[in-house]
Amino acid sequence: MASPTRPEPIPGTVIFDGEQAMKGYALNKMCYSFNEARNREAFLADEEAYCARYGLNDAQKAAIRNRNALELLAAGGNIYYLAKFVGMLGLNVQDIGAQQTGMTVEDFKAKLKAAGN
């Protein structure tokens, strides 16, 4: 069977495929390391050194510094590994949803609630 032709993009949605996976490997590997408490401590003690140890590129380092989910996605981040980064910062998926959509958290929650009507 032929490789499927690339389907229509879905607005506001990055498909985490091989291309993204290659781009984001170092970033995602760093975020995966946050599964362990001592790695989280090492990151929080010296963020720049920790990012350098995992070989992040400049865009990835800046996205980490800015705590910016859309930048992290654009730099090849995968939401499941990124969740460990933002979770460590005390943010949940609704905080991140609000950030990505440019809404307040309250408005983001209200929008979700409205989807039930």
Binding site: I10, P11, T13, L73, I79, V93, G97, Q100, L112, A115
Partner: peptide
């Protein structure tokens, strides 16, 4: 559900 991207919060009842 969708967690990531500008479409975060998408739900389709």
């Amino acid at each position: 559900h969708q967690l990531d991207g500008q479409r975060a919060g998408f739900i389709n009842k």
